[in-house]
């Protein structure tokens, strides 16, 4: 893949969010809904939600996109990443009444990043499309374990039990997959 090619997928979705922020653009919202709601629903079902609840939480997640469009910063995050964290939070809030301790970027106690670290964060934010391609290209065994770790919230030892693989194999395959994807982010 040509790293200099324009990242049109990301731009399109971020443009839609910008249109909502600027002009309460309902047509833009419909496009975002049609692309992301069924994927967020699928993600939530993999996390263990029943279909009806996943549908409900996917709707709530998209509603949050409409309501918070003005706070979205396309330099800091791809729309898919933003929705991933919104859906994560909706689900935590739905399954437990406890508080949800969360990193706050405005926290006065935040230890600032060096310029190099800030760069790494931006690189991660801007690598959505390359990551998509790289995930499709992972060896099946690595991709499966990565999906289990991300989508089923299983600890490495749970995954070892569920798959019958030795714990060391689980750890090394997940590490390999993460390293490959990290290399994609860093090559940007």
């Amino acid at each position: 893949m040509d790293p200099t090619s324009p990242d049109t997928t990301r731009d399109l979705f971020a443009d839609l969010v910008a249109a909502i922020a600027a002009g309460r653009d309902r047509a833009a919202f419909v496009k975002l809904f049609e692309h992301f709601a069924p994927r967020v629903k699928s993600y939530l079902m993999r996390l263990g939600c029943q279909a009806a609840e996943a549908d409900e939480l996917a709707q709530e997640s998209l509603l949050a996109v409409w309501q918070k469009a003005a706070t979205f910063d396309r330099r800091q995050s791809a729309v898919s990443t933003w929705l991933f964290t919104i859906a994560r939070n909706k689900r935590i809030d739905a399954i437990r009444r406890a508080r949800r301790p969360e990193l706050d970027p405005e926290d006065p106690a935040l230890v600032p990043a060096t310029p190099e670290q800030a760069d790494q964060i931006l690189q991660a934010a801007q690598s959505a499309r390359q990551l998509h391609t790289a995930i499709a290209g992972l060896p099946e065994d690595q991709r499966e374990l990565l999906v289990l770790a991300f989508f089923q919230e299983k600890s490495h030892s749970d995954i070892a039990v569920a798959t019958g693989l030795p714990l060391g194999t689980v750890k090394s395959r997940i590490r390999l997959a993460m390293q490959r994807l990290r290399a994609v982010i860093e090559e940007r």
Partner: peptide, 28 residues
């Protein structure tokens, strides 16, 4: 994470991968 920018960079990578996995998941 509040006190550790290098873990925040790791988190940004993990979230980007999570977003890409959501993107790649078969829609329901």
């Amino acid at each position: 994470l509040t006190l550790c920018p290098s873990c925040r960079a790791e988190l940004a990578r993990a979230q980007a991968i999570g977003g890409a996995l959501v993107e790649a998941t078969p829609p329901v």
